[in-house]
């Protein structure tokens, strides 16, 4: 009896492996393979076509000690992540709290606010470039009605990164949907009990809603942090001649890496850059995971 059971379990395990096999093979061939190759090539002067000589840690050393643009690009990216992650998270929570109300026509609003998340890519960036145009754009026109002399947005280095962050705030619909779903899942009995105890709406929000959605906040923070470090397209499309201008204010890490890889053909150097970014993101994600138990609340909570 026991024997057949373990045989069956073994068989099932085997089936499991068989089913995930395409993924495993794909992962080894198309993800792990290139990943290890890039680690190796980051210690060479690989230029894609004709050379690949071992140069030791020269790429890394050059990046840290001789390359001013490396630090500029890292700073720009950190700036962007530092502001965009908290702002988009708060924005999405705020929006979903509003859209969680029971008012007539709420579905129309939900659709409207989700719509920007459906649109994506270069079309949206071009649209925003027109909206943000200092002379003829709609945003400065509307600011003008209130007597505000709008900034030069994408032409003023102090405003270029805030411009992109505003643009990101416009498309928080995707994260909003997650928060909304999770808010709808919060048990009504908790609110009823709080109401009987005399808690007002704000206290209910901060003491019931927020703790109950912390798992989703955690997920959102981790993924948007990683996504934030990968910012590339926005700068490539929206900066003057795709170089990261004006005055290098939109030279993000990945844009500089791309330039090194495909304009200078310093592929080994670019791969070293990608590993530095990988390590930064890895450390930040580890910190996030370590801090999570302090503030993320899982229902059924056995402290996990």
């Amino acid at each position: 009896m026991a024997k057949t059971k373990s045989a069956m379990r073994r068989k099932e395990t085997m089936y499991g492996y068989i089913f995930v096999m395409p993924w495993i093979v794909g992962f080894l061939a198309f993800t792990a393979g290139p990943l290890l190759f890039s680690l190796f090539a980051s210690f060479t002067n690989y230029n894609i076509t004709s050379q690949m000589d071992f140069v030791g840690a020269e790429n890394y050393q050059g990046l840290f000690t001789e390359d001013g643009l490396f630090w500029t690009s890292l700073w720009n990216t950190l700036y962007y992540v530092l502001f965009s992650v908290p702002l988009t998270t708060i924005g999405a929570i705020f929006l979903s709290a509003l859209l969680n109300q029971d008012v007539p026509g709420i579905r129309v609003f939900r659709t409207l606010y989700y719509l920007p998340a459906v649109l994506s890519g270069v079309g949206v960036y071009l649209l925003w470039m027109q909206l943000l145009d200092p002379g003829t754009g709609m945003i400065n026109l509307i600011l003008g009605w209130f007597g505000i002399d709008g900034p030069n947005w994408l032409f003023d280095p102090a405003w270029t990164k805030p411009s992109l962050i505003f643009m990101k705030l416009w498309s928080v619909g995707g994260a909003m949907l997650l928060y909304l779903a999770s808010m709808q899942g919060v048990s009504k009995t908790l609110y009823e009990a709080a109401e009987i105890d005399g808690a007002n709406t704000f206290r209910q929000f901060f003491h019931i809603t927020l703790p109950m959605i912390t798992p989703v906040i955690f997920f959102d923070v981790v993924t948007s942090l990683i996504g934030g470090f990968q910012i590339f397209q926005e700068a490539y499309v929206m900066s003057s001649n795709g170089e990261g201008g004006p005055a290098n204010s939109l030279l993000f890490y990945n844009l500089y890496m791309w330039r090194q890889a495909f304009e200078n053909f310093n592929m080994g150097y670019a791969m070293a850059m990608s590993w530095i970014l990988f390590i930064i993101v890895f450390i930040l994600t580890m910190i996030n995971l370590k801090l999570a138990p302090r503030w993320v609340h899982y229902e059924g909570g056995d402290n996990r």
């Binding site: 643009l69 280095p157 170089e243 004006p246 005055a247 290098n248 030279l251 330039r259 304009e263």
Partner: peptide
């Protein structure tokens, strides 16, 4: 130095920005 203009353009940008 294939991409040397990448080091020149930002500096010139700053001239026209007044900084």
């Amino acid at each position: 130095a294939p991409d040397f203009m990448g080091s020149v353009n930002p500096k010139i940008d700053e001239v026209f920005l007044g900084s």
